[in-house]
C-alpha cells in the first residue's frame, strides 16, 4: 500500500499535501495497490473529501497535541502507522514539515528515500525516482534499493487530480509519545500567501532602488493575488524581510508564474526560481542575463512598466 502524509497549517490541509495525495494515488495505480492518506492532529477539512484527491482510505490520528511539529513524535507515529497498515511506500510533500519529517521516517522504516522528487517513479525495471539537483540546474534519476520507500514530491510539480469518490475515514489508535519541544511563540505573517505554496509570485531586485518603491510591486502582486519575493541583496539590505529571499541561498520556488522586476538574473538567483513554469522579466537593460531564462521579457523602466501592467491586469479581471 501507498500511504500519503497529509500536512496541515492552522487546521487546514495544505495544497502541497493535496498534490502529494494525487501523486500517491497515481503511484498506487501504477503499482496496482491501494492508497491511503494519513492525517495527524485536528483539521477543519472534511477528511472523507481526501477521496476527491485520490485517497481510498484516510487514517486519522486525532489529537490536538499533534497540530504543532515535533519531528521525533511525528516521525515515530508515521512509521508506526505505516507498519500497522502494511504500507511500503510513504509519500510526503517536500514542504517545510515534509523536509523535516520524511528523512527520519525513512530511517525508522529502513527505507531508501528520494526528496525533491519531480515526477512519478519509473517502475519498469526497479524503482527509479527523478529529483531536481544542483538547485534546479539538473535532474538525477535515483534507484531506491530497499523494499520500503519514502518519496517527498516537490511542491507545484504534480497537479491536483480530481476523483469522484469519497474516502473511508478510520481513526487510528497509537499511543502518542511525550513531546520534548515546547513552543513558546508563534509569529505569522498576516494575510500573506506563503511563498512556497504560491502559484503566482512577483519578485523585486536592486533595480527598484529602495524599500520606499515597493508599492508598485505590491500593487501588481495584489492585482494578481500573487505572493512577493526578492533577490538576496534586497533582503540583505533589509528592504524586504528575509523570508522573501529566493535563490540558491534562500528559498527555492517553482510557481506557475514568476515575474522578476529589476533583477539581473545572477546564476545564484536563477537557481531558486528556474523551475517556475513561466518567467516574465522586466528590466531596463536588454543585456540582463535574466532574459536568457525568461519566457516573456519587457525591456523598460520598471517604474513605468509595472503600473501599466497592473492596470492591464485589473482591466482584464474586470472584463473577464
Amino acid at each position: 500500500m501507498v500511504i500519503v502524509y497529509i500536512d496541515q497549517a492552522d487546521h487546514q490541509i495544505k495544497k502541497s499535501s493535496l498534490e502529494a495525495m494525487s501523486y500517491g494515488a497515481a503511484l498506487a495505480k501504477q503499482l496496482g495497490c491501494e492508497v491511503a492518506a494519513l492525517v495527524l492532529g485536528t483539521v477543519q477539512d472534511n477528511l472523507a473529501d481526501l477521496g476527491k484527491n485520490g485517497a481510498q482510505k484516510v487514517y486519522h490520528l486525532k489529537n490536538e497535541s499533534l497540530n504543532t511539529l515535533d519531528v521525533k513524535v511525528h516521525s515515530s507515529l508515521i512509521a508506526t502507522a505505516a507498519k500497522n497498515v502494511n504500507a511500503n511506500v510513504v509519500v510526503f510533500a517536500h514542504n517545510i514539515n515534509g523536509k523535516a519529517i520524511a528523512p527520519a521516517v525513512s530511517v525508522k522504516l529502513e527505507a531508501g528515500i528520494v526528496t525533491g522528487a519531480s515526477s512519478l517513479p519509473n517502475t519498469e525495471n526497479g524503482f527509479v525516482v527523478t529529483k531536481t539537483v544542483f538547485s534546479g540546474k539538473a535532474f538525477a534519476s535515483i534507484q531506491i534499493e530497499t523494499p520500503n520507500k519514502v518519496i517527498a514530491i516537490n511542491q507545484n510539480s504534480f497537479g491536483i487530480v480530481n476523483y469522484d469518490h469519497n474516502a473511508i475515514v478510520e481513526e487510528l489508535n497509537i499511543p502518542i509519545p511525550a513531546s520534548s519541544i515546547k513552543i513558546t511563540k508563534v509569529e505569522k505573517v498576516e494575510g500573506e500567501i506563503p511563498l512556497t505554496e504560491a502559484s503566482l509570485v512577483v519578485s523585486g531586485g536592486r533595480g527598484l532602488k529602495g524599500p520606499e518603491h515597493w508599492g508598485i510591486l505590491l500593487d501588481l502582486a495584489k492585482s494578481l493575488g500573487a505572493a512577493t519575493a526578492c533577490s538576496r541583496p534586497v533582503s540583505d539590505s533589509d528592504w524586504r524581510p528575509h523570508h522573501e529571499h529566493v535563490g540558491q541561498t534562500g528559498i527555492q520556488i517553482a510557481p506557475n508564474l514568476y515575474i522578476a522586476i529589476g533583477i539581473s538574473g545572477a546564476i545564484q538567483h536563477l537557481a531558486g526560481v528556474n523551475r517556475s513554469k513561466t518567467i516574465v522579466v522586466i528590466n531596463k537593460d536588454p543585456e540582463a542575463p535574466f532574459f536568457k531564462a525568461a519566457d516573456y521579457g519587457v525591456v523598460g523602466d520598471a517604474f513605468e512598466v509595472v503600473p501599466t501592467l497592473t492596470k492591464a491586469i485589473l482591466k482584464m479581471k474586470s472584463t473577464a
Binding site: A140, S141, I142, Q143, I144, V281, F291, Y296, V298
Partner: peptide, 19 residues
C-alpha cells in the same frame, strides 16, 4: 539505500518573447 542511475539537464528555454 539508493544509487544514482543518471543525470539530465533540463531542456533549454525556447527563447524569450519580447513585448
Amino acid at each position: 539505500t539508493t544509487s544514482i542511475k543518471k543525470f539530465d539537464t533540463p531542456p533549454a528555454k525556447s527563447g524569450v518573447k519580447l513585448i
